[in-house]
Amino acid sequence: MGERDDPAGDRSVAAMPEGLWTQPPVEVPELDMEQVRRVTEPATLVYTYTPGLAQTRFLRGLQEGRILGERAEGATDVYVTGRGMDPVLGRATTESVEVGPNATVTAFCVVHIGFGEKAPPTPFVSALIRPDGAAVSLYGTVLGIPYDEVRIGMRVRPVWLPESERSATFECITHWEPIDEPDVPAEELKGHM
């Protein structure tokens, strides 16, 4: 049931095309009283989020305009964003390694329905973007190029918020834009896509 036929109107799925998220009507037995059809129970829990050691290093790096990955002792793979672990080895990452800023698109999709207030005008491209030197890709949007010209292997660079507006959040990188370098052949991206 979408918002259009939702009497309480409190489900924000209006952006979805008609028919995409639907459920069959609920069959209710005959009762000698008005049916209770909906109960709203507000629930709010407030948390103080602890990013941890590795993510703190990553977020502080972004504030300084640097992309910092993490590497376990003796390992080769650099993880970004790091959560403090090499997930393949199951060992703590102890070394901070700067990666990028230039990067390669390893996968992308064209978004036709944007969610959230900060979504760019549609259609736009969401992509996985591997900073040079990193083993894994970050999530970001690719702007500054028509959406239908984005391709896997395309070279991009981050576009940063002005330094005065940056805080320790992933939003320091507003989006990624193309740079004038030849595409990376797909075979070189093997294992990173």
Binding site: T50, P51, G52, L53, R83, G84, M85, G90, A92
Partner: peptide
């Protein structure tokens, strides 16, 4: 309160 480490950073040494 473990204010510095996240959950995975807290539990990994114990698993190891």
């Amino acid at each position: 309160a473990e204010p510095r480490r996240n959950e995975v950073e807290m539990v990994q040494p114990v698993i190891q």
